[in-house]
Design a protein around this nucleic acid. Structure first.
Lengths: 333, 333
DNA sequence: AACTCTCCAGAGAGCGCTCTCCGAATGAGT
DNA sequence: ACTCATTCGGAGAGCGCTCTCTGGAGAGTT
């Protein structure tokens, strides 16, 4: 910013052409005489010209940047969901492929939500991606109404009809429970995720579905996807039903907590109680015992989301991408 | 973007004043008659006016956004450093306090680096923060030369003189080794981090310093901060010196790997081999046994970095912030 | 040879905003 | 009553770019 950067005008002067011509060259229009094009290119090179993006987006009404909005309440900000980082990185590198930038926005508080809304209204971004929405978040709807493309990572609450990329939470949970059934477990409990998140709801649904098919009773405790909540929930479960011989935990972080609680309670895993998690975070591979869990395709899901936000609605094949999950059997079940 | 958003002009017309006056009100200048101000405010409200940022930054040459550049080679992108996410979140919320946005950029490849350079040259950002730099990254220097404020999370390689916020890696490592010495260990090895990163270098230096003071021999293996590299390094160490009774590992991820390798080799921790890690990631609390490690203030460090990039050089008290570390003693040593 | 058609570069009008003058109106001073 | 500050809103010139429209030159047609 310090010293003046060359403008289109300067390049035009140096190449002895008009601004319009330089603009054409810069934007790769075909209708330019090769000789003139070369001259312009040389001038650009010599001057070290880089187009000013503000000026450009003022007229094109395009910003080449997409917001990634993380609707995470402040309390959870510091409990590290390891997948979060993977999503960010995938989205970022995927977007770079299309020459777009990622603008990261936290929307954990009311104030922050208003900020995001104003920001988008201010025309700063060409699209918005939501990650980790809770309940009936009004923000996506508000933004969609402004005519800005919106997508969600994970299926949003039913009220809003947004395009989204999700994994098959219901199917994955059912898969986990069926595995537990297959290895002969009879009293299968679950530690569910927060019920204001669709992921939490769906995994509970999958658990219930699988159990209903086999006529078993469901035993449910609810956590909030953090490890400590897993510890607490497991303890409650053990109090409620000391006879349980298996537990399906709605995410690995809580499963790790459950493993700890189980150990403290003197239960052996998987001998006394089998445990299946969900997510297949890296840590799942080196818990004691290594965690059997449901893996879902984070990278593919993030990629699908990016594709959705970049594709105009009329060109989309589908608005709802659902990716399959896979059971990873280790030692805990 | 879809339908026309109201402009300054429209607000001016509605409030029966000139554009200039509206601009004054929007930017909070004092020299506006309260009555007129109210009228303008009402018009803004009624029209739902939000200033167009492109137009504004075209004339002010300010963008209110700061780039967060992650110079991580693609190979490491998918090995989740849990702290990475914490840094991102802290930076983001800290920046929001000053009304700035975070633009996340990956700079793992040559091509990506060039992209970042062009982007910054294009005047998109008011400042750049670097995270996780390797070796003598030319990018920060190039950007600093353009007159854009640059800071680094962690001390950069000596060649470039950038403002930075770092933790006391040398001191922390020394602290860890001294603890090992205190509990009576005699053959203390280390698994060092990548030597093209200052953090890796400094922690090795701290290890060597502490050992030299006590006249012990150093035993070094080098990893790359990933868990698997910790496994490999630990195995090598065990081959090189089967008698070792302690190991200081340059980060927790590798320490977790080392713990696994040790278990596989039939060594008990801490009885046979004491292990100390570095970082105090959440997982360190629930390894088996829980990991003794060096905690450093990630949030404070990120906050300090943000403060540096936002403060003009002439107003800065210091260009180099170094935060103290703390040894967290658990069961592994 | 006169005409039309195509191709391609230049002219110039904005995009929405900020900010520096300017000038009108008000109040104080003589 | 008249002059001189002083306050505060308006006019208008850009900021750097895109893009439509225009017009000149050369090629093709009759």
């Amino acid at each position: 910013m310090g010293d003046k950067r060359p403008t289109l005008e300067a390049v035009a002067a140096r190449a002895q052409v008009s601004r319009a011509t330089v603009s054409r060259v810069v934007n790769g229009q075909a209708t330019v005489n090769p000789q003139i094009r070369d001259a312009v290119l040389r001038a650009i090179e010599e001057l070290g010209y880089v187009p000013n993006s503000a000026a450009r987006s003022l007229v094109t009404r395009q910003t080449d940047s997409i917001a990634l909005v993380v609707s995470e309440p402040p309390t959870r900000v510091f409990s590290d969901d390891p997948l979060f980082s993977l999503v960010i990185r995938t989205v970022s590198s995927e977007l770079e492929l299309s020459g777009k930038q990622v603008i990261l926005m936290l929307a954990g508080s009311q104030r922050a939500q208003a900020r995001v809304e104003d920001y988008v209204a201010g025309g700063h971004v060409d699209g918005v991606m939501f990650v980790s929405m809770h309940g009936a978040d009004p923000l996506p709807g508000a933004i969609a109404r402004m005519g800005v493309p919106v997508v969600s990572y994970g299926r949003p609450a039913v009220a809003v009809d947004l395009p989204y990329a999700d994994n098959d939470n219901v199917g994955g949970a059912a898969q986990a429970v069926e595995h537990l059934l297959d290895i002969g477990r009879r009293r299968i409990a679950t530690i569910a995720g927060p019920q204001d998140m669709i992921g939490g709801q769906d995994r509970l649904t999958g658990y219930r579905d699988a159990l209903r098919m086999s006529d078993r009773r469901s035993i449910v405790a609810v956590g909030d996807f953090t490890r400590t909540s897993g510890v607490t929930a497991m303890r409650h479960l053990l109090e409620d039903d000391p006879e349980l011989d298996a537990v399906f935990v709605a995410n690995d972080l809580m499963a790790i907590g459950a493993l700890q609680a189980l150990r403290q309670a003197g239960r052996r895993v998987p001998d006394d109680v089998a445990v299946v998690g969900f997510d297949d975070i890296e840590a799942a591979g080196f818990t004691d015992p290594p965690l059997t869990t449901v893996r879902h395709p984070v990278v593919e899901q993030a990629t699908a989301m990016v594709k959705l936000v970049l594709t105009p609605p009329e060109e989309r094949e589908t608005d709802h991408v659902i990716l399959p999950t896979e059971l990873v059997v280790r030692d805990s079940a």
